[in-house]
């Protein structure tokens, strides 16, 4: 439903080519190195072709902005543009130019440059915050599922308690206690969002633990650490990836919310959430574009992340459509 058409149209040939490779391999033919590398290139092209166009484009541009911000931004994002103190986009003025096409904020800083730099915060916090939550959730879920017993009961009760606390309230509380900085926000978001991973991964591990290959690993003399790292984690990794891709959007919104409330990324570092807050006063005086710019940026990013997550979910495991 949310998956772009491009996915459907490229599905058939991709499947066919993969099946071909399989038959080739199972016939026991030894492929030489040259053929091997060529098929790797082909596999990569196949992979690129089946990516969903819309979400990949949005996320690609976002990451491009984040990496190349100093090259792309026309102005310094934290200093007022020299000689200009205006809210109106320059292009709208008589004889105006495209120099500050989204206008300048209440301190005279170029909004477009701040949007570009703001992508950095969203990308970094979005990815590392998700990874932090994923890391905590993975450890908790795998430990609970694998060891079972009172360890499992304890961790799952903690998860239940955690889910009873409103996430944003907990995040605000932690942020005010720890002090606002970008890396603190990453940590906080990790601590707030680990429960969703822990629950689902625990369930996966419970079924994996009963699979014969895990028992055979034990029979072979593998210790707990080896079983967890070699047999359990690789087999829950797909699920972890899907969960992560669906969490990115949530984490980005959470970061923007914290920044909007003034307990997120501290000023003057440009973040979309704090730009929204800065523009709030201007909205009353009718300067809506100052608020529209970061709002559209956040909306598009989350849309892109969620579409990508949906696509990944269906691709990695069609049975988890209701995750």
């Amino acid at each position: 439903m949310n998956v772009p058409d491009s996915n459907n149209s490229t599905k058939m040939p991709r499947k066919a080519s993969r099946k071909g490779a399989l038959e080739e391999a199972s016939s026991g033919e030894i492929r030489n190195a040259n053929k091997d590398s060529r098929s790797k290139v082909r596999a990569f092209l196949d992979f690129v072709k089946q990516l969903p166009v819309g979400s990949t484009l949005i996320l690609g541009i976002l990451v491009f902005f984040a990496i190349c911000a100093p090259l792309l931004a026309p102005h310094d994002p934290i200093r007022p543009v020299e000689g200009i103190y205006t809210y109106t986009p320059a292009a709208w003025k008589d004889g105006g130019s495209w120099a500050q096409w989204l206008g300048t904020d209440f301190l005279g800083r170029d909004v477009w440059s701040r949007i570009i730099y703001g992508a950095r915060v969203s990308v970094i916090v979005g990815l590392t915050g998700t990874a932090a939550a994923g890391a905590i959730g993975m450890v908790m879920g795998v430990v609970a599922g694998y060891f079972g017993g009172w360890v499992d009961a304890f961790i799952m009760r903690v998860v239940d308690a955690w889910l009873a606390i409103p996430t944003l309230v907990l995040a605000i509380l932690l942020s005010m206690t720890l002090g606002a900085s970008m890396w603190n926000i990453v940590l906080i978001l990790g601590v707030v969002y680990w429960t969703r991973y822990a629950r689902i991964l625990r369930g996966e591990v419970l079924t994996l633990r009963e699979r014969d290959f895990v028992k055979l690993a034990e029979v072979a003399g593998a210790g707990r650490i080896r079983i967890i790292t070699r047999h359990i984690i690789p087999n829950v990794f797909n699920t972890w990836m899907v969960l992560a891709s669906l969490t990115v959007g949530v984490v980005i919104v959470a970061e923007a919310s914290l920044s909007f409330l003034g307990v997120g990324v501290p000023a003057p570092q440009p973040a979309w959430g704090s730009m929204l807050n800065d523009a709030r006063a201007q909205l009353l005086t009718g300067r809506w574009w100052l608020m529209a710019a970061p709002a559209v940026a956040i909306g598009l990013t989350v849309l892109g992340a969620n579409l990508f997550g949906d696509w990944l979910r269906v691709k990695l495991d069609p049975q988890q459509r209701n995750l």
Binding site: F213, L216, A220, R230
Partner: peptide
């Protein structure tokens, strides 16, 4: 003492190459 179980689809880890599956005992 080793074992071979009934279901060959459940007794080999789907994420490991055959070489690593067989070699595990040696590595341990």
């Amino acid at each position: 003492v080793q074992a071979v179980f009934q279901d060959p689809y459940s007794s080999l880890s789907p994420r490991m190459r055959v070489h690593d599956i067989v070699a595990e005992g040696l590595r341990i």
